[in-house]
Design a binder for these strands. Structure first.
Length: 459
RNA sequence: GUGGUCAUAGCUCAGCUGGUUAGAGCAUCAGAUUGUGGUUCUGAGGGUCGUGGGUUCGAGCCCCAUUGGCCACCCCA
């Protein structure tokens, strides 16, 4: 017998952890529903070709591929060896693998929309909370299996959608008790930046470099920009642009906007980007309690974003972003269905968990499963207790009868370990008098009442 | 994919420059009390020192490989 172990980068979630995770997930889910979103689930696996080529060369390498069945068939051995040769040469992999574990929720969603667009009512708002898999090397906050939690609106260009999504962030984090800032920017402004640098083709290079600003600082970003082929003048323009947000004196968002606009002059793309930001800022500021701010250094690595982009950070904990998203044109174009734009957001469930843990934000009763434990103190006694258990369950009170007649202290310890707040004791004394004793383990108090009153007891 | 670092009981760790039969705390289980737990006391179980090779009279300790954890880079959530 070898010791059992988990595959690299995966985790078990024990009862306590699941309870806390469910608290987060159900909060998010309820808000999604509140905003009119519908649930969607897609399979753990997709056809390999659905996934390949959608995440870039790096991404392709990180897709978990599933070995075909029947590879052990002796009659096919020659064929399979030839197929494997092809795989080694990077050609066709069909003989060995045709399916893969999903890598994110967006592409399977796009596939779903492409397959069902004729039956969907647009704008289609869906949310999806499922695990995804990446063959990445694990490290802090990075796993090979992790949950994504996405909400997208497809089939509409209205900026109202962005406003809704920002409001969802505000609602969820308000309910969870996490203070946040929602940072927004527009890819159009970044594209305009590339234009005024005279390098519209280098948009991706510029965004990748800018995206690292928080992490590596302005000097290294400048280095990276030069390495990616921008000359000193161009780097200077970008530096000026980036310096907007880092200004010392507290600016209002609107001051910031007007300063930013100066850099771009009459550039059409930039104008559109600023309009977007102003629209969303205006609506959200008016309607909710959200702390929304424009951050021109926000870039986000994913290069399928084309319009507004979002990122959420917790203000009280030093941790990366706990949510992000953006607008993309033509989600389903890759699957042959053009002209379906969309905008979506995502919650970083694991990080949100860490933030809640650090700030002690989980409500104390998340751990309470069973509310009442009935002690088992003998045959006749437990029979009565069994009847009472049934009654309480009718009232929807979670309760259980200890499984055997053992010492008090064992039964107490069981209650303590399972975080059961109430214990009901029916022993020989109670049996005689048709009473039962209710003990509150949290307060240490207890009282004895008639058995027939138990059904109305306020636990 | 690249690099660093670590791996000893269920958990957290000790274990000196290689030297008898590998330790502690916590946890677990059992006993003491037996209608009120978290205290105390007593006792017990549990480790082929991640795995496989090598050096040595002798390896938990040194060397090589391998697997896994953690961390950083790449990339990303």
């Amino acid at each position: 017998m070898t010791k059992p172990s988990l595959p690299q980068g995966t985790r078990d979630f024990g009862p306590d952890v699941v309870r806390k995770r469910n608290f987060i997930l159900s909060t998010i889910k309820n808000v999604f529903e509140l905003f009119g979103f519908q649930p969607l689930e897609t399979p753990a696996m997709e056809n390999l070709e659905t996934l390949m080529g959608k995440y870039g060369d790096e991404g392709d390498k990180l897709i978990f591929k599933i070995l075909n069945n029947g590879l052990d068939n002796p009659g096919k051995e020659k064929q399979i060896r030839d197929d494997f040769e092809k795989v080694l040469q990077g050609k066709n992999t069909k003989g060995i693998t045709e399916r893969a574990l999903k890598y994110d929720l967006t592409i399977p969603f796009a596939r779903y929309v492409a397959m069902n667009h004729s039956q969907l009512t647009f704008p289609f708002k869906r949310y999806q909370i499922q695990p995804v898999w990446r063959a990445d090397r694990p490290q802090k906050g990075r796993y090979r299996e992790f949950y994504q939690c996405d909400a997208d609106i497809v089939g509409s260009n209205s900026l109202l959608n962005e406003v809704e999504l920002a409001s969802i962030y505000a609602h969820v984090f308000d309910q969870l008790g996490i203070n946040i800032i929602i940072k927004i920017n527009s890819r159009r402004i970044l594209a305009a930046l590339a234009e005024i640098c005279g390098e519209p083709g280098k948009l991706t290079d510029i965004t990748i470099a800018i995206d690292k600003l928080d992490k590596i600082g302005i000097d290294k970003v400048k280095d990276e920009l030069s390495q990616r082929g921008l000359n000193n003048d161009q780097v200077a323009i970008i530096e000026k642009y980036l310096s907007l947000t880092s200004m010392k004196e507290p600016l209002t968002v609107y001051d910031l906007l007007s300063k930013a606009k100066n850099i771009f002059g009459n550039n059409e793309l930039a104008k559109k980007g600023f309009e977007e930001i102003e629209f969303v800022l205006d609506r959200v500021q008016k309607g909710t309690f959200a702390k929304l701010s424009a951050d021109f250094t926000l870039a986000r690595g994913l290069n399928y974003y084309t319009g507004m982009i979002f990122e959420v950070t917790a203000t009280d904990v030093k941790i990366g972003s706990i949510g992000g998203g953006g607008r993309y044109d033509d989600l389903t174009g890759l699957f042959g269905v053009p002209n379906i734009p969309g905008v979506g957001i995502s919650f970083g469930v694991d990080r949100i968990y860490d933030v809640m843990e650090e700030l002690n934000l989980f409500p104390p009763d998340v751990h309470i499963g069973t509310q009442v434990l009935f002690f088992n103190l003998g045959e006749k006694e437990s029979n009565v207790a069994f009847g009472l258990v049934q009654q309480l369950r009718q009232r929807n009170i979670r309760c259980e009868l200890y499984h055997e007649n053992v010492k008090f202290d064992k039964q107490f310890k069981y209650a303590e370990k399972k975080n059961i707040p109430y214990v009901v004791i029916v022993g020989s004394n109670e049996l005689e008098q048709s009473t039962c004793t209710i003990k509150n383990l949290l307060q240490g108090s207890q009282q004895t009442i008639l058995q027939k009153e138990l059904i109305n007891y306020d636990f």
